[in-house]
Design a protein around this nucleic acid. Structure first.
Lengths: 245, 245
DNA sequence: GTTATTTATGGTCGAAGTGACCAAAAATAA
DNA sequence: TTATTTTTGGTCACTTCGACCATAAATAAC
């Protein structure tokens, strides 16, 4: 698709995030074409005239990473005039939470161009780090994607302790331990949490209204004492409260 | 402007809100043209190819209601395929907080087509009430504007107790009493608050870091004991935390 | 097999915050 | 002068939260 001047286009850009061994990962691909050729970019796609942005984002995700039952959430819409040198392109950003075990086999498939980067933030600047430790500077990111990533990360961090988005990174929301959940929170917030306090927080918040229930304790992997497994009823609870600058 | 088929358009729709005597008001205008002729609608405008959505929203506001230093905030972007019968129109909603004393003279000017409605919510449904008590049903609202209004109201309510948005409804952010601020909160939340607890909440939150400071006590209108006046430093504090469903 | 290590679970303690009150001060209205 | 209204300040019980500590139950090390 070649954009025309004097016309206005909409794209969706995906913030595909996952948590692997205590680290928050973001998926980027290297641009093969100008503009911004060779730079790292969020996967994106133009929105067609016959589809909603949600549908466009869903289709793009299905093409690139056919994960079952993906969790998508609109983050923000970026409409600066000069954000795309090709012309007038408005970008709607969607945040997608994927459990790492579902993502990992898809990433190693031959056709995949997506690569994962460890995502953190230092003050206002985001930090993206390669598997080898090499970091991607904000200047190496295409368009205004650094800003989009920053917005998405702040959104995720802001929502994690009052919405269910943290649970969407769990391999199996019907059988997880509190330790696994804590690991997700620590990866997202990039800080260590007190295990005992975290347990109290989660249980008091979700077990009170019966959405979090103990399931039969199975024998589990890992070193220490085996953990009780829980299940979250993904009810349509009131989950709208706070927002972006 | 006449939309073409097979093309995609972007509009901004404004949620202009104010607080008058303890009530939250929203501005609507009656549509003069099809589609949705005769129905109540949010003021809106197409986004041109040479302007950002923020600029478009600012221009529209300046044309219709030239309030000084308006406070705008992007709420959400609505992109359902069938939301506009003319074709493919994506709407970006902006929330605008205006002090009633600045708004009132503009509303009574001859050219103004905007009218104010008392906005509340009963569960999932919004309630819009005329000055005379007559209510506007969700079905009398154009397009998907009922949904947009609902999203905006929830956003406002969710942010009011941790962001500075409540202060933007005050006539003078450099000289207000806690009673005036409480009245704003009560209007937005549509519930009564305990005066003493509200005072403690605001002072502990904003006075601690020096952003809220007492100013010299002027003689003031009203009945009871005269109030101490405060001033808020509208610093660029971290105000991004939580978001929409 | 015994000991160290790791992870999970449970609890305490004090600081801070919150909701429901009460009371007094300082103005106006009756 | 008295009643009413609004502001200001305070108490008290309850909850929440951060920083700890202790124990249980598994594996890893020796």
């Amino acid at each position: 698709m070649e954009p025309e001047r004097d016309r206005l286009y909409i794209t969706v850009d995906l913030l595909i995030m996952t948590v692997r061994s205590g680290q928050l990962l973001l998926l980027l691909s290297r641009r093969k074409r100008p503009p911004c050729e060779g730079m790292w970019a969020l996967p994106g796609r133009f929105v067609g005239a016959e589809e909603s942005a949600e549908e466009a984002a869903g289709k793009l995700l299905a093409e690139m990473l056919p994960v079952p039952d993906p969790f998508m959430e609109q983050v923000y819409t970026f409409s600066d005039v000069a954000r795309d040198p090709r012309g007038r392109v408005v970008s709607m950003a969607y945040l997608i939470s994927v459990p790492w075990p579902k993502l990992e086999p898809l990433l190693s498939e031959p056709g995949t161009i997506l690569r994962s980067f460890h995502l953190t933030a230092e003050g206002e600047r985001i930090c993206l780090t390669d598997e080898s430790g090499a970091s991607v500077a904000e200047e190496e990111l295409a368009f205004d994607h650094a800003r989009i990533i920053r917005t998405g990360l702040m959104r995720l961090r802001g929502k994690i302790d009052y919405s269910e988005i943290g649970f969407r990174f769990l391999e199996d929301p019907d059988a997880f331990s509190l330790g696994e959940l804590q690991s997700v929170f620590e990866a997202v917030l990039d800080s260590r949490l007190d295990t005992s306090n975290f347990r109290r927080f989660i249980l008091s918040r979700y077990q009170r209204d019966g959405r979090l229930s103990e399931i039969c304790k199975e024998e589990k992997r890992g070193r220490g004492r085996p953990a009780v497994l829980y299940r979250l009823e993904t009810g349509n609870h009131a989950e709208n409260r706070r927002e972006e600058k």
